[in-house]
Amino acid sequence: MLNLVSIVIGFVTLALGLIAFVPLLGWMNWLVIPIGIVGAAIGAMSSSNGGRNMNLVLIVIFALRLMLGGGII
């Protein structure tokens, strides 16, 4: 059950993160990354690894986007 909750949080993170890829909306990554961290933490408590891994990949992708944009853009 926790894995399913983690996957749902991951999809919410993905949807918000795709919006943050639009130029001048990179600041949204500061909001998206903590949501992914919560999803990864919930996924770590489950017996399956799918939700945790999905959230970790999303965190890395959006952190790279944040670094490429200089932290703001």
Rank of each mutant, 00 (worst) to 15 (best):
G69N: 01
N29A: 06
R65H: 14
L66N: 09
V22S: 11
G43W: 02
R65P: 06
V22M: 14
A20L: 09
G51S: 06
A40P: 02
L18R: 11
G39Q: 01
A41G: 15
F62C: 01
F11M: 09
N29P: 04
V38M: 07
V38Y: 03
P23T: 08
R52Q: 05
I35D: 00
V12A: 09
V22K: 13
L56R: 12
F21G: 07
V32P: 00
V22I: 14
I19W: 09
A20N: 06
S47P: 12
V22Y: 13
L2E: 07
I33D: 02
L56F: 11
R65D: 09
N53Q: 13
G26R: 04
M45W: 13
V60E: 08
G36K: 01
L68M: 15
F62A: 05
V8M: 04
A15E: 01
G43H: 00
I61Y: 07
V60N: 09
L25H: 08
I61L: 15
G26A: 10
N29Q: 03
F62M: 01
W27T: 08
M45N: 08
N3F: 00
L24Y: 14
F62V: 01
L58S: 05
A40R: 01
G36Q: 03
G50D: 12
G70T: 02
L4D: 13
G43C: 05
A15T: 00
V12C: 06
G26Y: 01
V60Y: 03
L24H: 12
F11Y: 12
M67C: 15
R65G: 14
S48H: 12
L24G: 08
S48L: 13
L56T: 14
R52N: 07
S47D: 14
V32I: 08
G10Y: 04
S46N: 07
L24E: 12
S46G: 10
W27R: 07
I33C: 06
V22Q: 10
M67Q: 11
I73H: 10
L66C: 12
L58C: 11
G17Y: 00
L14H: 05
N53W: 11
G71T: 00
F11A: 03
N53M: 13
A41S: 12
I61W: 07
S46L: 06
V8C: 03
L66E: 08
N53L: 13
I19L: 15
G39A: 05
A41V: 05
L66H: 05
L58P: 07
A20T: 04
I72L: 13
A15P: 05
G51P: 07
L25C: 11
M1I: 01
L58R: 04
I33M: 04
G17D: 05
I73C: 06
L68W: 10
G26T: 03
V8W: 01
A63D: 05
G50Y: 12
G26H: 02
V38Q: 04
G10N: 02
I72Y: 09
N53D: 13
L66A: 14
L24M: 15
A20D: 03
G50T: 15
T13V: 09
L18I: 11
L68D: 11
L2H: 05
L4R: 09
M1Q: 12
L24W: 13
L31R: 06
G26P: 04
W27S: 09
N53F: 08
L2N: 07
I73G: 06
G10F: 00
I59K: 00
I9S: 00
L64E: 09
I35Y: 01
W30Y: 15
I33T: 04
L24Q: 10
T13P: 04
